[in-house]
């Protein structure tokens, strides 16, 4: 994660409409935003276009970003997720995917039909928590599903989805603390 100073600089530049923030945002958050977009739209060329749109929107609305309402990344990922979901639901996108013969892409056009979630190849903290929590958080946060869609898709009650989100995030939080402390200790050790 970015240092507090670097994070603050990006926020300041964005609000001041200083274009220098664009490469900084891309270098720190571009692939994270792309990851979420790609998982939602499922196609490289669409994901690339949506990421471009995301940056335009971040830039246009940058002055309106209010740190009082939450962190910059939360704000950006919401923009990216919404644009990606809009793209996925757009008529053109559906028609395009429907003529695809590739099965994976065909069912992307109506994801509620799927019954088995594609397993996310988790790399970080996510892989450390129980699979049932990992699946729900991944579907909601990284793949743009609503809680109701997750409930339908996994065939578990909505209440279970909600409690899995809650417990899963609590578990992740523990790992987050653990990793942050470990990183700090490592930094101290190197500095010695």
């Amino acid at each position: 994660m970015l240092s507090k100073q670097a994070y603050q600089r990006i926020c300041d530049q964005l609000q001041a409409h200083d274009q220098a923030c664009i490469p900084l945002i891309y270098d720190h958050y571009g692939d994270a935003l792309y990851g979420v977009i790609y998982r939602i739209v499922g196609r490289e060329e669409d994901a690339a276009e949506v990421l471009q749109d995301t940056f335009v929107k971040i830039w246009k609305n940058g002055a309106a970003y209010d740190p009082e309402r939450g962190r910059l990344f939360t704000w950006m990922i919401n923009i990216a997720r919404n644009l990606a979901i809009n793209r996925r639901n757009s008529k053109g996108f559906r028609q395009q995917t429907d003529v695809q013969t590739d099965e994976k892409l065909v069912y992307l056009s109506d994801r509620s039909r799927e019954t088995v979630p594609e397993t996310l190849d988790a790399k970080g903290m996510l892989q450390k928590i129980d699979e049932k929590y990992r699946t729900v958080i991944s579907l909601l946060y990284l793949q743009g599903y609503t809680q109701q869609e997750v409930s339908d898709r996994l065939r578990i009650p909505l209440g279970t989805v909600k409690s899995r989100v809650k417990i899963g995030l609590r578990e992740l939080r523990k790992w987050y603390d653990f990793d942050t402390t470990a990183a700090l200790l490592a930094a101290f050790a190197l500095a010695e």
Partner: peptide, 27 residues
């Protein structure tokens, strides 16, 4: 704030490499 930081970390860890050339295009 804690929830946001945790989720942010998740998204950063689960990033997907964007295609080469996209950075230039966006910049």
């Amino acid at each position: 704030d804690e929830l946001e930081k945790t989720l942010e970390q998740v998204a950063l860890e689960e990033e997907i490499k964007s295609p080469p050339g996209l950075r230039d295009k966006i910049l």
